[in-house]
Design a protein around this nucleic acid. Structure first.
Length: 293
DNA sequence: AAGGGAGCCAACCGCTGGGTT
DNA sequence: GAACCCAGCGGTTGGCTCCCT
């Protein structure tokens, strides 16, 4: 017959995740990798269902997630892919490293949809909302009609914009067409991060955070910083990662081993420092980014 | 300064396809 | 082959924050 019944939901916690829960989940997954989500909450000591754990990890805690608004290029990619694939957010997300389907879905619904409509483009069909009438009727006074009707016809721009938005890949919509003026947060890459006493090149090639060093395990590791500087107080405030979280060196195996050790002992985040060369790592910036301090 | 509305996003819900027994 | 489980997916919701009046 079938397998054991799925976990009942009695006694399981719902709602926002706490920093402590995040910590438990992260340390477990770093130590053990992703295996059977159903077993994860039990093994990690969480009163959550496996589904919730998976969602939290994939959408929020994964170290390789980018944060911040989608860049102009990413937005274009999303639009292009959406035209081809429709609402297959996971497929679209798979083309955008570090982005999740949930994030893209949210961004689509809150930003891109609106933008396209303003441009006179139907976000579903990616075609102009209305055929261009000879004499466009005046816009409604409040512009609060139904979504399909709210925008006046911008025949010229919509056609031009449609082209640039959905087909151009090499330009940013033209210098004059500031079509995709996103409120983009500058995304720092690993090379942008200056590690005191650490040569970035070395760190890049030898660290767990280089894309190329992704192992066969579930996650690749990349680093980004949400701002140029590392603010200890800020780090502490966004996630109460134990102050004593020290990891040895820059190797992913060390990191995983340390996390596993911490999980195994379950009582301490203190680690030996045999080399006096520890790099302190604030593992997660609010749970999503690897940040060095 | 307070209240209300809009925007945003993390998390949940329900469904589906594929795998297991 | 049927019954069942599980991971993943897409739609939806609830609550927080920000902005406007």
């Amino acid at each position: 017959m079938g397998r054991q019944p799925c976990c009942d939901k009695v006694g399981l916690k719902k709602g926002p995740w706490t920093a402590e829960e995040d910590q438990k989940l992260v340390s477990f997954l770093l130590g053990n990798g992703q295996c059977c989500w159903r077993a994860v909450p039990k093994l990690a000591g969480l009163l959550r269902c496996g589904k919730s754990c998976r969602l939290r990890w994939t959408n929020y805690l994964r170290p390789d997630l980018k944060r911040g608004l989608l860049s102009e290029a990413e937005e274009k990619t999303v639009i292009d892919l959406h035209e081809q694939l429709g609402n297959r957010w996971s497929k679209i997300a798979s083309q955008l490293p570090g982005r999740t389907d949930n994030e893209i879905k949210n961004h689509w619904n809150t930003h891109i949809k609106k933008k396209l409509r303003k441009m006179g483009i139907d976000p579903v069909t990616h075609k102009p909302l209305h055929p261009a009438p000879a004499n466009p009727p005046p816009l409604p006074a409040d512009g609060d009609g139904s979504p399909e009707e709210e925008e006046g016809v911008e025949d010229k721009t919509s056609a031009a914009v449609l082209g640039s938005a959905t087909t151009s890949t090499g330009t940013d919509g033209g210098g004059g067409h500031d079509v995709f003026c996103t409120d983009e947060v500058p995304m720092l890459h690993l090379d942008d991060i200056v590690l005191p006493g650490v040569d970035v090149g070395t760190a890049t090639t030898g660290s767990p955070f280089s894309e190329s060093s992704a192992t066969s395990s579930s996650s690749s590791y990349s680093a980004s910083a949400s701002s140029g500087g590392i603010d200890e107080e800020w780090l502490g405030s966004i996630m109460e990662w134990p102050e004593s979280m020290y990891l040895v060196g820059l190797d992913v195996d060390d990191m995983v081993t340390a996390a596993a050790a911490a999980t195994a002992t379950s009582s301490s985040w203190e680690f030996e420092d045999p080399f006096n060369t520890y790099q302190r790592i604030a593992l997660f910036d609010h749970g999503h980014e690897l940040t060095w301090a």
